[in-house]
Design a protein around this nucleic acid. Structure first.
Lengths: 244, 244
DNA sequence: TGCAGAAATTGGTTGGACCATTGGACCACT
DNA sequence: AGTGGTCCAATGGTCCAACCAATTTCTGCA
């Protein structure tokens, strides 16, 4: 018998209907990220469902990072809502820390290089000026602190992703960044972590300013390579100390 | 069941605490995907919270695809739960279909090339044999159907990601694949979509078998380029037909 | 006018109730 | 033994009416 000839029938789906109605509402009102949604009580009344059902639907959205609830204040839209949303659950192999960290870097190596190249192709003069500004801030912080500043460094990179014109770069690399730092609790004992990557920030910028995609790609690869080296040095050190 | 594996909740932030308790419970009981969780009523009683609070927590897990609820039956674990999990909500710029499709391809271009290169570096003889098997199946399907078969083609690529040794490749590219096909409802009128990519599957395999990372990277780039070309052709065609 | 405290608003939690679906137990009939 | 039917307890889905906790807004006094 053809299994497909008897698909499961559609059972009740109240909260799904609520979500669909909410999508419609947000689009109809043209709500922008940051704006407040109607209160749960009002939604329940308008949609003719109980407040509990509304809450279940909103809980789903909250779990997907679409919405933020603040007790006593309201529920706020956090991201543009669109039907073209995909929810990507990422899990690492769960091996030791070193393996996980290297895996996030492998992804970053591929994406950073591509983003830098696209950025060099597409950057407008204004974009280039913005990136240079972020670079200056980062270099300033580096000299002041005598070391890499995660914050300013990350902002520089984000500027590049944004100019690449493809929002997926920023989203995916940001996830890698978060994964990386989740395993970075104990810093493997490498004091000057990131030092080696410093000069490549400027070389990447120069390639972008010169509209040199291949050059930018190469410099980005070199940058990631220094981070991988730092990581390997740290892992070797850790292994030694593990042996007492 | 061990009663001690479900200690009562005490602090505020109930539902988060409930989730944490559930993670502990699943690990303590070593629950495997497919197994059933305790009923909501039992969880509520054990954790000393109301059933609604338990439901909010479970709704979050359900939204994250971690768990499946079946009315009248129970709540079942769908995926292995681990603390090294990250959920990444992806949203495309939401522009027209063509832009979105190209953006997923830009990500794939970066990742496919890297995965192919890593695969060529790390493939064992058994891995290479497995990839060749998938390639044969795909080529067989191509000749039979006189065109690309999404199913077999995808399996070939997946084998490469798996051999790369980094599970993130498969997860992220799979997400891109799904995004791509979400916009692929109306096929832009390109009849022989994917035809051009066919020969590169074998060249990629040959580079992998020859342990030639740079070659594999290059062939993977060529493959993606053909898909991008198909897409551009389709977009041009569509634009013409839009003009009547 | 400035600001502390009261009042209203809003999400968070609770407990209880009922409905719809599921799956197993039981039974009559073949 | 097998088939189908009926019943019933278990379970998730929904609803309601409160109350709690955090936040915002208003009010009235200094």
């Amino acid at each position: 018998m053809d299994q497909n000839s008897l698909p499961p029938i559609q059972t009740t789906a109240r909260d799904d209907a609520v979500l669909k109605a909410l999508v419609g509402f947000v689009r109809a009102e043209a709500l922008q990220p940051g704006e407040r949604l109607p209160t749960e009580r009002i939604l329940a009344e308008r949609l003719k469902v109980s407040r509990n059902t509304v809450r279940e639907a909103l809980t789903r959205w909250e779990g997907l990072g679409l919405v933020e609830r603040r007790q006593g204040s309201g529920t706020y839209l956090k991201a543009a809502v669109s039907p073209d949303m995909l929810h990507l659950p990422l899990t690492l192999a769960g091996g030791n820390d070193f393996t996980s960290l290297m895996q996030t870097l492998e992804i970053r190596r591929a994406l950073e290089a591509e983003a830098a190249a696209l950025c060099a192709e597409r950057a407008s003069p204004a974009d280039i000026a913005e990136i240079e500004r972020k670079l200056d801030i980062m270099e300033q912080a580096f000299r002041t602190l005598d070391g890499m500043s995660s914050e300013e460094d990350w902002e520089f990179h984000q500027a590049i992703y944004r100019v690449s014109g493809n929002p997926l770069f920023e989203q995916i690399i940001a996830a890698m960044h978060e994964l990386f730092h989740r395993f970075w609790e104990h810093p493997l004992g490498v004091r000057d972590f990131g030092h080696a990557s410093f000069p490549y920030h400027r070389t990447i910028y120069e390639c972008i300013a010169a509209r040199d995609p291949q050059g930018a790609r190469g410099e980005a690869l070199k940058l990631i390579a220094t981070v991988e080296d730092d990581l390997k040095r740290g892992a070797a050190k850790l292994k030694l100390s593990d042996l007492r």
